[in-house]
Structures are given as structure tokens and as C-alpha cells.
């Protein structure tokens, strides 16, 4: 077994929005180079957890360590230094629609480095080649399809050669082929460039094709953490239900509190 080099660590992270408990004491560790998938149903706190891991949201209690640094203790400059080492791929791609594809990808380089314009252009070409969109530099995001936008978002996220990549639902809303392309890209980036990846998804197919380890979230808690095979064999009825996608089981789909018939007669 390789010696463990933990790059992300969450300790007992709790978050409330008003009365609702979104994260209920989550602890997890992600090691360098691995692809860690966080799965779970809609509204189980996956995206919220991701936002805690990148320091976009502060936890109510508990601690998050990113690259060995306690995020809560950092000042703005130190936080910026950590942020330059991570990349985030948003669910909606979050491209800047006033800028061309090329400007979107080059933005972090233009803002954070002293590289010459020609060198930056070359980097942009290399990144767009990686996501299969070289030659699209001059287009505006509004001229692209959903899958292309996501790939541009990915190219922008890796523009600064991050050590850790975060993906928020990278395959949501894409057709199976594009979803497969995106999965392959994630896999390529993490295996060939040995980038640590954290992926939030509820797409079972991509979970089992990319994950080194999986955490299943339910009601703000990590139900099961382990290798995909372990999760597949899990005896936990909730995990089983989620993997098989069956509507009947311990996970309730109906979230109403009172009785339907009583409610009708009120």
C-alpha cells in the first residue's frame, strides 16, 4: 500500500440553512491522485459539501483542510494561493458570456501570471485540444451546445494546472455519448496528469467508470465510503436501493409530513 498523502480532509462538517440540517457531521479524506466520487440523491447535500471543500461556504462547525491548510484560518491572500491550485467545473459550466471561449480559458492565466500573450494563446490551444475543442477560441459561449460549454468550462478549470479538480454534476443533462466523453476526460486528467479529482454526481454509470473510492451521502451523512466494488456489494439497504434505482425501499421519495387523505379533508 502506498503511503497516504491526504490532500482534502473534512472533519465533522455541519451546516444548517435555517431549520434544515444540510450536512450532519461529515468526515472524509481524499488522497493525492485518487478520484473520489460523492454520490447521493437530489437535495442530500452533495453540492453543499463540495462548496465547503473548496472554501466557498464556511461550515457551522467542523473543519475543512485543503492541501494541508485549515481553510477557516486562512486570510484572503493565503486563500487565493490555495484557490490557484484547485479547479472547479460547474454544473452549468458558468462560462462568462461576455467573453469568447478563448478569453474564458485564458482568463486565469491573464490575471494571475506574467506570461506573454503568445505563450498564453499556446496554453489555451493545448487545453482546448485536451477537451477536443481546438479551433473554437473565437466563438461566444451562447453559440455552443451544453456539452461543449461543459468542456470549455473544464478547459478553463485546468488552465492553471490545478492539483485538485472538483466537478459538480459533470454529466448531468448530457446525452449518454457526451457524458461518456466527459467521463473519459475526467479519467484521462486524473490518470495521465495525476490530478486529484472530487466528483459530485448521481449518475451511476459514471460513478462506476471513474471512481477509485465512493462516498454515498444521505440526509447529510456519509452512509458508506469505499471502493466501487465494495459499494456494489454493500448490504446497506439504502445504498442498494440507490444503486438499483428502485422507488421502493428505506429511502422515502415522499417528503410530506402529514397524511395525504387527512390533508385533503382539511
Amino acid at each position: 500500500m502506498m503511503e497516504k498523502d491526504v490532500v482534502i480532509k473534512a472533519e465533522n462538517v455541519t451546516k444548517r440553512f435555517g431549520e434544515r440540517v444540510i450536512l450532519n457531521g461529515i468526515s472524509l479524506e481524499v488522497c493525492r491522485g485518487e478520484t473520489f466520487v460523492i454520490m447521493g440523491g437530489s437535495g442530500c447535500g452533495k453540492s453543499t459539501l463540495l462548496r465547503h471543500l473548496i472554501g466557498a461556504l464556511p461550515p457551522d462547525s467542523g473543519k475543512v483542510y485543503l492541501l494541508g491548510k485549515d481553510l477557516a484560518s486562512l486570510n484572503e491572500d493565503e486563500m487565493d494561493r490555495v484557490k490557484k491550485k484547485i479547479g472547479m467545473c460547474f454544473q452549468s459550466a458558468a462560462l462568462f458570456d461576455s467573453m469568447t471561449v478563448g478569453e474564458n480559458v485564458s482568463l486565469p492565466l491573464r490575471e494571475h501570471t506574467r506570461l506573454e500573450t503568445h505563450v498564453i494563446e499556446t496554453v489555451v490551444k493545448m487545453k482546448l485540444e485536451l477537451v477536443g475543442l481546438r479551433g473554437f477560441e473565437g466563438l461566444m459561449p451562447s453559440q455552443l451546445s451544453g456539452g461543449m460549454r461543459k468542456r470549455v468550462g473544464l478547459a478553463r478549470a485546468i488552465a492553471m494546472d490545478p492539483e485538485i479538480m472538483f466537478y459538480d454534476e459533470p454529466t448531468a443533462g448530457l446525452d449518454p455519448i457526451v457524458a461518456g466523453v466527459i467521463d473519459k476526460l475526467i479519467l484521462d486528467l486524473s490518470k495521465k496528469l495525476s490530478i486529484t479529482s472530487v466528483v459530485v454526481t448521481h449518475d451511476m454509470k459514471s460513478v462506476f467508470s471513474i471512481a477509485d473510492r465512493v462516498a454515498m451521502l444521505y440526509e447529510g451523512k456519509a452512509l458508506a465510503v469505499g471502493a466501487p466494488d465494495e459499494i456494489k456489494k454493500s448490504e446497506n439497504p439504502m445504498v442498494r436501493q440507490f444503486i438499483s434505482g428502485s422507488p421502493d425501499g428505506p429511502i422515502r421519495f415522499f417528503q410530506q409530513k402529514d397524511d395525504y387523505l387527512e390533508h385533503l379533508m382539511k
Binding site: A56, M79, K83, F90, Q91, L95, P108, E111, H112, M160
Partner: peptide, 20 residues
């Protein structure tokens, strides 16, 4: 309207994660 649209489409958050 412009900044509002950027906010609701995660563009502001994207800026922040890029340390901008």
C-alpha cells in the same frame, strides 16, 4: 441585470474559485 445574471448562473462563484 448583468451582475444578477452572472450571479444566478454561477459565474460569480466561478470567479471566486479562480481567486478573482
Amino acid at each position: 441585470a448583468e451582475l444578477g445574471t452572472m450571479k444566478v448562473t454561477e459565474q460569480i462563484e466561478a470567479l471566486e474559485t479562480m481567486a478573482l
